[in-house]
Amino acid sequence: MKIDVKKIDGSIEEYIEIGCHARDGRVNDIIRFVENLDGNISGTKCGKRYSIPVSEIFYIESVDNKTFIYSSKDCFETAVKLYEFEELLGDRYFLRISKSVVLNIMKAESVKPALNGRFSCRLVNGEEVIISRKYVNPFKEFISKKV
């Protein structure tokens, strides 16, 4: 694939144009990558593709090998794996809180004890997610060291 980069005037909005024969998986991967860099994650809902701003994501959950992105009220499916999100969004204050959930710390409101050494984290939209025992200490360290 030929890559062509050209400088444009500061008054014009920056853009990326892809010239392709067909919009296949490879092209979709490039789009997804660029969107992620731009602060957006792509996800699908009812067969429609949406671009979700990272700042609007509450948490990302993996269920039966499928990954779901949760915003305040919506849920989107994505092809990106949970561990990829963990790496990709680590510096945007997203943290793994259980085997299946990566949480946007900025959307967490409070923490309360759940059964058996686990904790329940209440989000600003009222939802609750579980911080499992293994991830309690990393969570504690993460929120206390960076203050």
Partner: peptide, 18 residues
């Protein structure tokens, strides 16, 4: 655990405010 949770909530608020 309640004490631990309270400390975590306080740290969380401070973290977000910072």
């Amino acid at each position: 655990d309640s004490r631990k949770a309270k400390k975590m909530t306080d740290d969380l608020k401070a973290f977000q405010n910072a």
